[in-house]
Write a protein that binds this DNA or RNA. Structure first.
Length: 974
DNA sequence: TAAATCACG
DNA sequence: GACGTACGTGATTTAT
């Protein structure tokens, strides 16, 4: 098991896994090695994508060459992997092609290529020549058409075709004998990936595109229909023509009319996206055969571009082939043993490090103290040390440290095994544990003793990826690592909300590199082994690479903090929390196991009782937990109303539906609601939680994800301790199982109304700010101002409405949503909103300005400068765009509240220490609440101190107020 | 693996 | 004028 599988990264890994059906190191299985395979490289497509994906990079003479380097690397890898296949590179010829004859606007809105890209077009053609590969281009045709044509010809000739491109417009060509390969991600694209993208099989892709259109290519499609709707329609009607012919049958009136009105436009769109596979081939297919490379020509070209490292690779390749003499002996580069760091291969890297594919890997297995000392020397010399730990569990509080990897410069890394056992024995089952010997390893204590000085040395920066995890392991071995940088947090600060921040995802994004996956090393499912069973050679390759990648990511990302003015956000809101949250996780919170067990039993009995009653009311037995069965019982058999069906055609049975039925007097609905509540409490809380209690300490250790949310909040997993019940009495029984250790108390301190205060502050709403300054009941105050009711005549009903509106404002209000919340007509709710905006006119101004900012920049900003990316802000689909706009207005509010809480958390430990409260432990953060465990005698004083720190965490035009509670359990303290 | 549901702020 | 509606999370369950 590895540290990078913590919550933050797990999410990212899973995202990546979702997009990748198979993780292959080599790109897709090569076709038969008879030389009949054909690779068609989309040269025009590649250059644009590589240009934007790869860091900028200049030749010594200043010519930009990042896309050329990417292209050369891609071809080298392709040729190395696929010796027995023919490769041809296809280019667009001119801007205009036959499509413009019948649709002049085709690709009309496409902007001029950037200046840095223009000179690279010619260079890419030169590169193709240098590789001795045929260039295919034809006036009046796009590269796509030529690829379609050659793909057809090749398949007819019985050859296997691989299209090297990620362009979705080419996905229509996928079929038996033809597949695609994403050159940057090195990921195969087959029918499954096409389906994932378009929701239909490849042969229906053009029909979907005809309906959905494409803003980039200016293909009109049918307005109001996106890929998802299009896929659904095509699946239902078979193809575009059948759909258009039967358009009258469509139920949704608007959609029906659109399809009728825009039928012709859809047909034109289909012709635009349909590739012409009968273009006149500029070269006969037979000429596309495997060719002998001219190494000297290639080397000359690469040298001219300043690509020193890949020149080295080509030369190494030639030595292997015996093409040139090899004086020094071409053994794989041994790990360096000198303390002098080899200079980084800086050839093509001027402002940014080169992609790691260009850097030789020199990884060393460290099994004696002498070798380890050399690495400590190296770290002192460079002042930089990337660190990564491997463990046998996801919970750092209980995990065994299995190994440590270090990197001091790109490509130079080592792995120090600490607790490896006989390799593979457990999984293979062939060797017995007793006979197989563990490999030689330095004792953990010796390694820690050797590393402690450098890890705590203020002049050596330690770099990790999700270092919070590693920090805990070192702390458990008596080492407080500092100072620290975290590449995951840097990425989060730079591009939070734009993508995940797991190491694998970032390596692909910034380094165009796919690291060895954890699954490759440890397997999955039943064959999964813990990291201590991984053979040392594989462990070295994986673990050293992790430290190496971490260092490389840091070199790419860290300078961008300055460029993007995010240094302060990173240094005040994120980096200081690494040790703070690490200590919270390590400490954990005490849970009363017996109390949970009693609750479980109690719930089981009551659930059984309700189940019997519900079955009786339904006249038969069924699974209450199955929404499907429940819907059928309620609406088909008992006919309690007509029932609402969702997208999947199933009846909705959520609590709002059941509550409505219960109000109509249907006992069964109320009983099901009761059952649901208790079943939730039992399965999620009383049962699951017991299993997470660490035996002996009786404490539970959650993991706080620092780089997951779009707004800067933390999240909590394994278990989630940020959603422990509180709103119902039944739920609070669970909260009472969270207790203080003997002789201790729990303190809960929470911000009062922080988000609404921030609305007043950020939108600068005079009347609302005044109300907060006066310290009056804010919901009553807004009710008074919006509805014109004097405060002394306020009713709870009017106040309730104002409270709901206040919440709605924070969420990005809509009449529909507010109406549903309050159980009133949307029209009436709209009138409330209108009144609110009239009374607090500054709010409307702020919301519009915030949305405009999001449209202009693609992100919004919190009061403390944190960026929240809003990817959907330019959505064509109105509903999705409206969603993005609500995100845009909510994120600065929620995000600023998160910032303020982080500022408080960063200050609390020092404040406690200064006051002599060394034994007060911060346990949990629940967005606007902090929970502490403290010796009984100090509870009052500590609570006061924490309140002061939290209230002083920001100085605003409205006061920040924090309230504290003390108790023996969490419910009492809250 | 996805969808439905529901716990929290 | 239609669209689909509160914002942010994570865990469990059933169904596919």
């Amino acid at each position: 098991m590895s540290d990078e599988k913590t919550a933050d990264e797990k999410t990212a890994d899973e995202k990546t896994a979702d997009q990748t059906t198979e993780a292959t190191d080599t790109p897709a299985p090569a076709p038969a090695g008879d030389g009949s395979g054909l690779y068609l490289v989309d040269g025009s497509g590649f250059i644009f994508r590589a240009f934007h994906a790869l860091p900028m990079l200049n030749r010594p003479d200043g010519t930009p060459v990042n896309a050329v380097l990417g292209f050369s690397n891609m071809l080298l890898k392709l040729l190395a992997d696929l010796k027995a296949s023919a490769v041809a590179v296809v280019f667009d010829s001119k801007r205009l092609n036959f499509r413009n004859d019948f649709y002049p606007d085709y690709k009309a809105h496409r902007p001029e290529p950037p200046e840095e890209l223009k000179p690279q077009f010619a260079l890419i053609r030169e590169a193709t020549e240098a590789f001795c590969l045929p260039c295919l281009e034809l006036e009046g045709y796009e590269a796509d058409d030529l690829i379609a044509t050659y793909a057809r010809l090749a398949v007819e000739a019985g050859r296997e075709v691989t299209i090297v491109s990620s362009d979705k417009d080419m996905m229509q060509l996928v079929r038996p004998g033809v597949r695609m390969l994403d050159p940057l991600k090195n990921k195969p694209i087959g029918p499954d990936e096409v389906f994932e993208k378009f929701g239909v099989a490849p042969d229906k892709v053009v029909d979907v595109q005809a309906l959905a259109g494409d803003s980039v290519d200016n293909v009109p499609g049918v307005p109001g229909i996106g890929v998802k709707t299009a896929a659904q329609l095509i699946t239902e009607y078979g193809d575009l023509e059948s759909l258009l012919a039967r358009a009258g049958e469509i139920k949704q009136p608007a959609r029906r009319q659109k399809l009728i009105d825009y039928a012709e436009q859809a047909r034109i769109s289909r012709r635009l996206v349909l590739l012409d596979d009968h273009a006149p081939p500029p070269k006969p297919l037979e000429e596309l055969r495997v060719r002998e490379p001219d190494h000297q020509k290639l080397i000359d070209f690469l040298k001219a571009q300043g690509f020193r490292t890949i020149v080295g690779r080509v030369e190494a390749e030639m030595r292997k082939d015996g093409t040139i003499a090899d004086g020094a002996g071409a053994s794989p580069a041994p790990a360096p043993t000198t303390a002098t760091p080899t200079p980084a291969p800086a050839g093509e890297a001027r402002s940014r490090p080169a992609p790691p594919t260009d850097v030789e890997k020199r990884y060393e297995l460290v099994q004696d103290l002498g070798a380890l000392a050399a690495w400590v020397e190296r770290a002192r010399a460079t002042g930089i040390l990337a660190v990564d730990t491997e463990t046998d569990s996801l919970t750092p509080a209980t995990a065994t440290l299995v190994g440590i990897s270090l990197a001091t410069e790109p490509g130079l890394a080592c792995y120090i095994p600490l607790a490896h056992k006989a390799a593979g024995a457990a999984a293979a089952g062939e060797l017995s544990f007793d006979t197989a010997e563990a490999p030689p390893q330095i004792p953990v204590a010796d390694v820690m003793a050797a590393l402690k000085d450098v890890l705590e040395d203020p002049s050596v920066l330690k770099i990790g990826h999700n270092f919070k995890f590693d920090h805990q392991l070192f702390a458990r071995h008596g080492v407080r690592v500092a100072p620290v940088d975290d590449s995951m947090l840097i990425s989060y600060v730079l591009e939070g909300g734009a993508h995940g921040h797991g190491m694998d995802e970032l390596a692909e994004l910034h380094l165009a590199y796919r690291p060895i996956s954890y699954a490759e090393v440890c397997g999955t499912g039943k064959a999964k082994i813990t990291f201590d069973r991984v053979p040392l050679d594989k462990a070295l390759a994986y673990a050293a690479e992790d430290a190496d990648i971490t260092l490389r990511l840091w070199r790419v990302l860290k300078p961008r903090l300055v460029d993007d003015r995010m240094v302060t956000v990173y240094e005040t809101l994120e980096r200081p929390l690494v040790p703070v949250i690490a200590d919270m996780e390590s400490c954990g919170i005490r849970v009363d196991r017996a109390a949970l067990a009693r609750l479980s039993q109690d719930l089981a009995i009551r659930l059984a009782e309700i189940e019997t009653e519900v079955h009786k009311l339904a006249n038969r037995s069924f699974n209450i937990g199955s929404p499907k069965q429940l819907g059928e019982i309620l609406f088909d058999e008992l006919k309690l109303g007509t029932g609402k069906k969702g997208k999947t055609g199933a009846y909705s049975t959520d609590s709002s539906v059941l509550e409505e039925l219960a109000e109509q007097g249907h006992t069964i609905a109320q009983r099901v609601l009761d059952w649901r509540q208790l079943a939730k409490l039992k399965s999620t809380y009383t049962d699951a939680l017991q299993a997470q209690i660490v035996e002996g300490t009786e404490r539970v250790h959650t993991a706080f994800a620092m780089a997951v949310t779009n707004t800067g909040r933390l999240s909590s997993t394994d278990p989630n301790l940020q959603n422990i019940p509180v709103r119902t009495e039944e739920g609070r029984k669970i909260r009472r199982a969270f207790v203080a250790a003997p002789g201790h108390k729990l303190i809960s301190v929470d911000y009062s109304q922080i988000e609404l205060r921030l609305v007043a502050e950020m939108a600068n709403i005079a009347a609302l700010k005044q109300a907060f300054q006066d310290g009056i009941d804010i919901h009553a105050a807004t009710a008074s101002q919006v509805f014109g009711v004097p405060l002394d005549q306020m009713t709870s009903e009017i106040r309730r409405k104002a409270k709901a509106i206040n919440f709605g404002i924070i969420y990005g209000i809509s009449g529909f949503g507010l109406g549903r919340q309050l159980g009133i007509m949307p029209g009436e709710a709209n009138a409330f909103i209108k009144a609110y905006f009239e009374r607090f006119h500054e709010l409307k101004v702020w919301m519009e300005a915030t949305k405009a900012f999001a449209r202009q920049h693609g992100h919004v900003v919190t009061l403390f400068g944190r960026r929240c990316y809003i990817p959907g802000i330019h959505e064509k689909n109105a509903a999705r765009r409206a969603f993005a706009e609500r995100q845009a207005t909510n994120a600065p509010i929620q995000g600023t509240a998160a910032d303020i809480m982080k500022r408080a958390m960063a200050r609390v430990p020092a404040a406690l220490k200064d006051a002599g409260f060394d034994d007060v432990r911060m346990l949990l953060q629940v967005h606007d609440e902090l929970l502490f465990e403290v010796p009984e005698a100090k509870a009052e004083a500590a609570a006061k101190l924490v309140r002061e720190v939290m209230e002083g965490a920001a100085t605003l035009g409205v006061p920040l107020v924090a309230e504290a509670g003390i108790g023996d359990n969490w419910d009492e303290a809250h």
